[in-house]
Structures are given as structure tokens and as C-alpha cells.
């Protein structure tokens, strides 16, 4: 490769110009770039957790509209806000008949994803005297929102909310849940810390 032909010179020059251009665009984007923008659900807009939205149908768009077979949305129990109730309306179907143990006979979660266990010092005689922890199994929950609606004020403390699992979410440009969401509760933004 002793001498460059004129043609090669032009080629190099054009490629160099293109590289500079692409580099410029990349630099501009990189300066602005963020690491963490992702789809998030605004709990104040989601009809299942929105305060004051009572007597409305449960919205299960998060469970049905995700492109994934098991939705990327999960119900999350914020433990510090959980009342650890004896009768949790998000765990029990509180309208079901009471069994011999004094508890409702049916559970609310259609996928049986919530686990209930007594915590702290356990009263052997009076189960109502205990606090209970409610843990939602991530691998079972599909984000249908029933427990969210049941735990909301004024029936409960509203400690359960729907949240997007960012490790599962494909972060589609046209997030199909966001387009189906009747409340425009989906937003692409910096997730809460």
C-alpha cells in the first residue's frame, strides 16, 4: 500500500466525515443520557390504588396487556406501611363464609401468591392477638390488582401497590399496558429510589 489513489482518498475523507458526524450525535446523546429511565406506575393515578376510587371495577390491564406471558407488573407490599392485620382484606376474600377457625374460608388472590404468617410473640390461645406479615410471591403474582384494591383506604392502609419489575420489563417503546391503561398511570421516568 504505497500510494493512496484519489478514489481511496475521497473514500477515507467521506468515512472520516461520517465518523465525525456519528461521533457528534453520540456525544450529544451521551451527555444527555440517563441510565435508569423506565416505565413506572403512578399509584395516585392507577385506579386500583387511587384514593377515593371506590366501588369501581378492578382494572387488570397490567396482568392482561403485558407482552410477556407473566406480566412485568407485580403487587408490592410496602411492609413499613402494612398494618399486619389479623384479617387482611387483601389476603382473605372477606365476603366469604367464616370457617370454624373464625377466618374467612377463601383467599382473595386468584393465584394464591400471598403468604400469611404470624410474627413476633405468638399468642397460643388467641390468633387475633398476633400481628401477621403478608408476603407476595413475585414468581406467582401477575399484577391483577385485586389485593391492591382491597387494601386501599378506607378498607385498609393502602400498603400494597402495583409496580413494574424493571428486571423483567422489556421496556417496550409502545408499552402495551401503558396504551391500555385507562388512567394514563404509566409514565417513563426515573424510578423512585
Amino acid at each position: 500500500m504505497s500510494r493512496l489513489t484519489r478514489r481511496e482518498m475521497l473514500g477515507h475523507a467521506a468515512r472520516g466525515a461520517a465518523l465525525v458526524g456519528m461521533g457528534g450525535v453520540t456525544a450529544y446523546l451521551t451527555v444527555k443520557a440517563h441510565d435508569t429511565y423506565a416505565w413506572e406506575i403512578d399509584p395516585n393515578k392507577c385506579i386500583n390504588s387511587q384514593l377515593g376510587a371506590l366501588g369501581v371495577e378492578i382494572c387488570d390491564a397490567c396482568a392482561t396487556d403485558c407482552v410477556l406471558p407473566l406480566s412485568a407488573v407485580r403487587a408490592v407490599n410496602h411492609y413499613p406501611e402494612c398494618g399486619r392485620c389479623y384479617i387482611c382484606p387483601a389476603y382473605f376474600e372477606i365476603k366469604s363464609a367464616v370457617g370454624p377457625d373464625g377466618l374467612p374460608s377463601e383467599k382473595l388472590c386468584p393465584r394464591d401468591a400471598i403468604e400469611r404468617k404470624a410474627i413476633g410473640w405468638i399468642d397460643p390461645d388467641d390468633p387475633a392477638n398476633n400481628f401477621y406479615e403478608y408476603v407476595i410471591d413475585e414468581s406467582l403474582c401477575n399484577g391483577c390488582g385485586r389485593c391492591v384494591m382491597a387494601c386501599k383506604e378506607p378498607a385498609g392502609l393502602g400498603s400494597i401497590r402495583l409496580e413494574v419489575r424493571h428486571d423483567v420489563c422489556l421496556d417496550c417503546n409502545r408499552c402495551s399496558i401503558s396504551t391500555a391503561c385507562p388512567e394514563d398511570a404509566y409514565e417513563r421516568r426515573e424510578p423512585a429510589a
Binding site: G83, I87, P89, I94, V98, A155, G156
Partner: peptide, 10 residues
């Protein structure tokens, strides 16, 4: 949760 004699909910 059904019988009004009892107290419903959480």
C-alpha cells in the same frame, strides 16, 4: 364479613 352480627373488614 357476611353476618351483620360480626364486624367485617380488617
Amino acid at each position: 364479613g357476611v353476618d351483620p352480627e360480626g364486624f367485617p373488614g380488617c
